[in-house]
Every structure is written in structure tokens, then in C-alpha cells.
Design a protein around this nucleic acid. Sequence first.
RNA 1: CGGGGCGUGGCGCAGCCUGGUAGCGCACACGCUUGGGGUGCGUGUGGUCGCCGGUUCAAAUCCGGCCGCCCCGACCA
Length: 507
Amino acid sequence: MYLREPLTQLLASPDTIFSMADKMDEKKVTPRSQDFAAWYNDLIIRAELADYSPVRGCIVFRPDGFAIWENLRDELDRRIRQTGARNAYFPLFIPQSFLKKEAEHVEGFAPEVAVVTHGGGKQLEEPLIVRPTSETIINHMFAQWIHSYRDLPLMINQWCNVVRWEMRTRPFLRTAEFLWQEGHTAHATRQEAEHETLLMLEVYRSFVEDFLAIPLIAGRKSAAERFPGAEQTYTIESLMPDGRALQCGTSHYLGQNFAKAFDIRFLDENNELQHPHQTSWGVSTRLLGAIVMSHGDDQGLRLPPSVASTQVVIVPIWRKAGETAKVLSVARDLAGKLTDAGLRVKNDEREGVTPGFKFNDWEMRGVPLRLEIGPRDVAAGEVVAARRDIPGPPGKSKVQLAEIVTSVRAMLGQIQANLYRQAKAQVDSNTRQFDDYAQLRAQMEDEGGGGFAELYWCGNARCETRIREETRATCRAIPLNQSPDQNGRCIVCREPAAERAFFAKAY
RNA sequence: CGGGGCGUGGCGCAGCCUGGUAGCGCACACGCUUGGGGUGCGUGUGGUCGCCGGUUCAAAUCCGGCCGCCCCGACCA
């Protein structure tokens, strides 16, 4: 399904000297500027984050890729628990009839649902679907657990896999099976549920920006982009360097739609039967794709220290046999000191590969900080530190061994902040305001994704549809808390428009 | 489902036109060498050429059928 090697060689101009080009391609990934999609695929394979599987649309998470997910998951899980939600686990299989209970929900998901028709060698009485999301089965259980306002709020989160039979898949960004967390809550009042929806949006926003160093626009979705069955969908959207937007997480206010469909009722303080107001919210392994694209360069991955499986790699260097023991001893001592300080450290003592090879290897894998230590450094009581966020000689500096822990901690903090700064600059330079529809169309026709377009939109679906059909850009987010503008005019119909929206071509 | 392309060691490809029993690069293993930015050399492992059938003394190569995959389109939080 995916091309293991990019099409770039096939697409290369006929006068390319293949014998030379091939030699280069074996060592380097496809340059990002040349073919963004090929660069992305190359990086994932070469950095050993994931591999293709024999099953169409499904990928294997290799240890280095899964470690990023684990680090990300542990931190987000901690933040989710802080809001009061608790983890639980619901079945992978859901009775097919459940999906049909909420009209919009079934319409939205039925086409991409996998169905199990046989088990134990027999045809099942009722087919089971493999969950594409768990609203139905969780609300079925909520109906049995909720009786009184004293049972509310009920806040459940689960980490699991889900399956959506996508027609077109890409590693991390859209796979048939993916890992995610899905939160589901039920509240006594609309206000409480709406507050929860926005609270979780803010949890996601701060988590992705601070921990993953990915700049975002937070806002609500247009009616057309809403989750099937939701009253309101909120989103965090990022912009990839190729100018296409990536939805990084969503939080939905479900109103009473599912409560009514699944007959969830409780007695309030006045002994009156009420349907609770609900929310659901989730982020997925798609975030790994966002990390790769937002930070990576032609040398490979660039991982924020917060999620990197290895934060610091030590490369010992020696020339003569007599130097080896001394260098290794200092390197090991250094690794121990940093590990004791709570850092994730690797000491690369491989023989038979040159230091230069190791430098490139660890840069490909995105390790934020490399410490080179050779005979000269040992003699001087220092190491050479090379920052992954600053390529080449400018990123190198000498650090005294005596103050190594403090220095490394400081540099990791600087790298985390700088990766965000670089990504933000990239997004800002690709975000434009438009007041003229012809200019918007021209921008979106350009090669590449077209970037974020910030514009006034009246909110009418007809104008939104026209933009989508004529520019292929969709409404990604309508930022929250805008101060109403009396002078705004819809970019399409010129009617008064109170709010600005961000449009972009999306993944 | 419509249009286009491709199936040859793990990966990328050549060989096919003009049949003679498979080759190159990378990767991998071993040895020496090298080591502060992807060292160099040597030796070696690994393939019923997508599948089935036909033609022929002989098929990766020619003929027929089938299967699979990829790209574009349709579709899609």
C-alpha cells in the first residue's frame, strides 16, 4: 500500500545520473523541500518509529516510536486524572444495533466500520462491529450506572485502539487501526458539560503546545465539520510545514443526544427525571505524525526532550587503543551521572562504526542532545555538546564535566523552547489574512498546501461549501472569545460577519 | 468501481524486445583497516524470477488466464 521508497527516483528528470543519485539516497532521506510526503514516509522508516504491516492500512509501532507514544500518554494521562476523570476499559466489540441508535452517529460512522459476522465457526446472531469510537457502548453502560444527580458528574477515560476502514491511509496520520484516549462524561447541567468540554480543550491545548512543542489554533468547528451526533465540536489545529492543517485533538459537547438515544436518566434535586448533558474528547497516535512533521528536518527527526525516548546520547571517541579505556571510563561515568539525575541517556559504545556515522545515526533518530567525548576532552575535563535543534557547528559548545548535569538540564530546556519557537515561526509565516475571495483562491491554487487562511465568514453553510469546492480548503477552526467586529464582511457573500475563521487544506 | 502503472534475494533495480537455466547496488555476516561528521578493501550468506496453464529440446524472457500491490479519481471527525 505505502511506497516503501518514494517515487522521487521515478519522477526525477531523465538526465539525472542515477548511479550518483542512488548513492546519496541510501544515506539521506528525500529532502523535505523536494517531496514533503516522501520525506515524511522516509523519516518514519529510517528513524524506526514504525513499519508497514501485511495488513492494509495498519502499521507496526516499533520500540522507538512506541516509546514516544508511551511518554506522551503518561503525561497526558496524569493531566486527565487531575481533572477528575478515571480510567476504565470497555469492549472492543459492540453490537451492531447500538450504532444505529443515534441517527447522525450511524450516518457518520457506518461507512467506515469493520463488522464481525462469524465467531467460533458459526455465523453470529447479531453482527458485532469493531469500535470506531465508544460512545454507544459507554453510554449503554452509563444508562445502568446513572440514577441520581448524586451519581453525577460521571467522568470516564479509556486508552484503547479503534478501527476505521479508511480508503486512503498514511502512517500515524490516518491508519485503519489507531491508538487513542477517549474521555466520556455525563453532567447534571448543560453549563457543567459545556465547561467540561472547554476545560478538556484547554488541557489538550496546553499539553500539545508545552509538551510536544507544537503551536496550535484552538477553536470550534463549523456545523459541517462537527462530530456525528455532537451539538458542538471544539478542536486544536496545527499547521504542517507543507501548508496543510492537521487536527490534533477534539472535544465535543454532545448535549442530550446520546442520553436520549440510550435512555440515560437521573432524578434531580426536585425529584424530576432529567437526561444528563454529555461530553467526549480524544487525541490519538496522529500526534506522532504531528511531531514528525512539525519538527523534523532533512537530517531526520527532531524530538522535543519531553517525549524523546533518549534525551541525551554520549558518543565516545578514540584513536589509539591506549586511549579507549580512559575515554570509555569517563563516558560511562558521565552516563551514570546523567541517568541518576533522572535523564534518559544512551552511551553509544558500538565498535566498527565511526563517530561520524553515529552522529548522523542519532540525528536521524531525533535525539535532542549529543555529548561527544574524546581524548582531548578527557584531558581538558570537558565534553562537546551538540544540540539537535541547531544544525552544524553553531549548535556545538564545550561543557565542563564538573557542571555537566546543570548544563545538560538547561540545554534540554532551551531545546524544548526553541523547537516550539521554530515551529511557531513556520506556522506564522504560513498564516495569512484574506479579505478578497479571488486572492484566497489564488493562494490555495498554489503548489503546496496553501497555509492557514484567516478570514471573515458569515457562518452560512453555502459560503463554506463554495470555499471547499473551489479551493479545497475547509473550515479548520473558529477561534474562541473573539471580540465582535461590526465591520467584518464574509469573504464570499459580503454579508456582515461577526467572526473570523481559519480555513486550510487538511490532512 | 473508472483511468494509469508495477510484480526478479530484506530493499531498490537490470536482464525480457532478439528463449540457453539469474546479475548489480545497498543491507546483512566475518576479517583486516579506519575512527573529532555517513572510512576503505576483501571474503561470504541469501532468489522454485507473483500464481496457474500453454508453446518449445529448453521459458524470468513468447502466448493465455488469474491474483496481488501502488498512483490518480470517487469517498472520508
